[in-house]
Simulated scan of single mutants.
Amino acid sequence: MEFIDYYKILELDKTATEADIKKAYRKLARKLHPDLNPNDKEAHKKFQAINEANEVLSDPEKRKKYDLYGKDWQHAEQFEQQRAQQHNASQGRQQFSGNDEKDFSSFFESMFGDSQYRQAKYRGQDYNAELTLSLLAAMETHQQTLTVNGKNIRITIPAGIENRQVIKLKGYGAPGVNGGPAGDLYITFIITPHPDFKRLGNDLYTKATIDLYTALLGGETTINTLKGKVKLKVNPETQYGTKIRLKGKGFPVYKKEGEIGDLYVTYEIKLPVNLTEEQKKLFTELSKLK
C-alpha cells in the first residue's frame, strides 16, 4: 500500500495538537466542500482525502498507530500479535541447546510443517469513509466514483438513501496480511440540508407564500417542488398555516421502485405593504363591516 501523508494533506506537522487538527480540517472542508465545487473533480478528491486524514489523526489511538507503523498502521494489532508470538517462540527456542538442536528442529517441524515459522493469514482492516450528497442528488439513483487509497471505486447509489445511512462494500478495505482476505469499506452518507425543503422519512415539507387577496377570495398559486413547478388551487378564506398534501410528490422510498412519499405544503400569507390612500380607505370600510 502506498504511504499517504495525512499530516501533509491537512497542512500540518507531526507536533500538531488535537485543536490544530480540528481547525485545519474545518478550514479545508469549507474550502473543498462538494456543494461549493460541484464541477471540480479534483476538489472532490481532496475533500475525500481530508476526511480520511481527519478520521485517523483526530482519533488518538489511530494516530498513535499511524505514527508508529506508517502505511501499515491498520495492521498494527496483527503486527503486535506476530511480535508476541515470535517472542514466545524465541523463549521456547532458548530451552533447547547443544545436542538438543535436532530435537528443536523436529519439534517445530511437527508444529509448522518445516523448521521455519509459518506466518498466519490475517484479514485486512476495514475502511470508513463519508460521502456527501445534496438532497436533490439523493432523490435519483446514480453512480459516483470514489478514490480510496489511490484506487477508483465506482458505486451505484440507490434513490432514497437516508442521511447517516451506512452501506458496506465487501472486500474494498485494506488488503489482508500473508494472503488473508481484504477488509470491507463502510460508507456513511451525509445528506446536506436544503434551504426550502425539509425531509422526514420519505415525506418532504415546504412553505408557500400567497397574497392576502388570493387567501381571501381563492385562486391559484405556483410552487416549487424538487421535481419542478406545480400549480395549486387555493380555496377561498384560506387561513395562515393551512397545510395541504401533494400525494406522491415527496421522496422515493429506498430500494422500493415506484414508491414515493408525499409533499406537505404550509401556506403563509403575505400582507400588502405601501398601501395607497384608496386602499387604506377600502380596508377601513371592510373593518367597519366586521
Rank of each mutant, 00 (worst) to 15 (best):
A215C: 11
V230R: 15
F112V: 01
P158A: 08
T147C: 06
L131F: 08
K65L: 05
D5P: 01
E101T: 12
G241N: 15
F96W: 14
S110F: 00
P34D: 12
E55G: 08
A53I: 12
I155R: 11
A208R: 09
I190C: 09
L289W: 06
N163S: 06
E61F: 00
G228C: 13
Q86I: 09
K255R: 14
E277W: 02
D40M: 11
N274T: 00
D203P: 02
Y213L: 15
G183V: 01
E42D: 14
P272H: 08
A129T: 04
K168L: 02
P60W: 06
T17P: 11
H33P: 01
A24H: 05
T206K: 04
E11K: 14
E77T: 05
E55V: 03
E130I: 05
T147E: 13
W73P: 01
Y6S: 03
M1P: 01
S90M: 09
A159Y: 13
A89G: 04
I187S: 01
A174G: 02
A53M: 12
D35V: 08
A19F: 13
Q279M: 11
L200I: 02
Y127K: 04
T17I: 10
E101K: 04
Q81I: 12
E77V: 05
G176P: 03
T15K: 13
T17W: 13
N128T: 01
T192C: 01
L185F: 08
E278R: 05
S106C: 00
K23E: 15
Y7T: 06
D262R: 03
T238A: 06
G261I: 05
T15M: 12
F3T: 01
P195Q: 13
K46P: 03
L146T: 00
L133R: 04
S287Y: 08
S287L: 12
L289Q: 10
Q48F: 11
I244W: 10
F96P: 01
T132E: 12
Y25Q: 14
A53H: 09
A49E: 15
S287A: 11
S287T: 10
S90A: 14
K151Y: 02
I155G: 12
A49R: 15
A29V: 07
G160M: 13
T225C: 02
Y254Q: 10
G70Q: 07
L212H: 07
V177A: 05
L32M: 13
G171I: 04
A138L: 13
G180Y: 10
N149K: 14
K256V: 07
R93S: 07
P60H: 11
L146S: 04
A215Y: 02
T276R: 02
Q74R: 15
E11L: 11
K231A: 12
I157E: 02
N128Q: 00
Y186C: 06
E55K: 11
Q125A: 14
E61G: 02
E80H: 09
G92M: 05
S105L: 02
T242C: 10
T266L: 14
Y25A: 10
